[in-house]
């Protein structure tokens, strides 16, 4: 039987406690806290992506579409109708969920690269629409969150620490959803889809439905991250919010570098990549043009070459092997759960 306080859970719990007290020990207006908030936000985004990308191995390169839908829905509701972004966040999740459902109908018949390309195209389409439909979206100039001091009811704060705790709360929420899905029946079905879709179908799994459910949840959570991102950075434009390299690929990259399909993977991936990028930027970007990205890219390549299965693969192999041996039914599933 699985212990209630397994080492993995203790580490995770310690991480969240440490994260929660961080604003109390560092400069509350400082850059360090801002970077930490971005780490948590990207961890939440990568975790949302992980639901489809990790559990079912449906590699989406278009999650920026949902991210942007979340940002646009809440910001436009606020700017045009005065609706609080807290409510807009859930409205955005619904819009993104509907978009994911519509997108699933044609794309879930596609596999591997073709699925990735189709999702990538979807995000590009959203970017083009946001750029051209200026009457609704403000067009290529983008949208600003008006400066209004501290108004908690409208998700507006002066202190970075308030945003930080909101983002931490979102990360905890997304992690709980991920864990519930991964441990529940749907998690087993998704992993069955990942291992062999035809076999899963034959075994009685309604593969379309299970993938559809997962992508709607994943899209909705991603949209919530989009709202929080917009509130936190105060400004976005179509090219940045629907960005392929800046959002879609980064979400996938963080989860992959950290460990696909694992609960801790996106958190570790974000803890590794976001500060690394910041430090590269802070210390190298004034030295030579483009040097910081070059160094960042090289470290990234090295990380993937050293451990293609992600940083989480360094987690004790012994326990995983032992559990795999116990579970005679499906070693692959146990391995996936090992983290």
């Amino acid at each position: 039987m699985r212990q209630l306080f397994s080492p993995g859970r203790v580490v995770l719990l310690l991480f969240f406690v440490a994260a929660a007290v961080l604003p109390l020990v560092v400069d509350p207006r400082g850059h360090l806290l801002r970077v930490a908030a971005m780490v948590l936000l990207f961890a939440a985004m990568a975790q949302s992506w992980n639901i489809v990308g990790g559990l079912a191995n449906q590699i989406s390169l278009g999650h920026a579409a949902f991210f942007g839908l979340g940002a646009y829905t809440s910001t436009l509701l606020f700017l045009k109708l005065g609706v609080s972004p807290w409510i807009g966040m859930f409205a955005g999740a619904v819009v993104a969920g509907v978009a994911a459902a519509l997108l699933s109908i044609p794309t879930f018949r596609l596999k591997g690269h073709y699925f990735a390309l189709a999702t990538l195209a979807f995000a590009e389409v959203m970017r083009v629409i946001a750029n051209s439909w200026a009457g609704l979206t403000g067009g290529p100039v983008g949208l600003s969150i008006p400066f209004m001091g501290t108004q908690p009811a409208y998700f507006a704060f002066r202190a970075v620490s308030s945003y930080y705790w909101a983002i931490l709360g979102l990360l905890v929420f997304v992690c709980i959803v991920f864990q519930l899905l991964a441990r529940g029946a749907i998690g087993y079905r998704l992993r069955a889809v990942r291992e062999n879709e035809n076999a899963a179908e034959v075994a009685g799994v309604d593969t379309f439905r299970v993938k559809l459910t997962a992508s709607i949840i994943s899209a909705g959570l991603t949209a919530m991250c989009g709202t929080v991102f917009a509130q936190f950075t105060f400004f976005f434009d179509p090219d940045s919010i629907f960005s392929l390299a800046g959002i879609s690929v980064r979400m996938a990259m963080i989860a992959i570098v950290g460990g696909l399909g694992t609960l801790g993977g996106p958190i570790i991936g974000a803890l590794f990549l976001i500060p690394l990028e910041e430090v590269a930027n802070a210390y190298l970007s004034s030295k030579a043009a483009g040097l910081s990205q070059l160094v960042f890219g090289l470290i990234l390549i090295a990380a993937i070459l050293i451990q293609p299965r992600g940083i989480m693969a360094f987690w004790p192999k012994k326990r995983r092997a032992a559990r795999a041996a116990r579970s005679s039914v499906a070693p692959a599933q146990a391995a996936a759960k090992g983290a």
């Binding site: 850059h31 801002r34 970077v35 971005m38 983008g142 936190f232 950075t233 105060f234 400004f235 976005f236 434009d237 090219d239 940045s240 960005s243 800046g246 959002i247 910041e278 930027n281 990205q293």
Partner: peptide, 8 residues
């Protein structure tokens, strides 16, 4: 390089 990085 992009607006996304400007705030941080």
């Amino acid at each position: 390089p992009t607006p996304n990085t400007a705030a941080a």
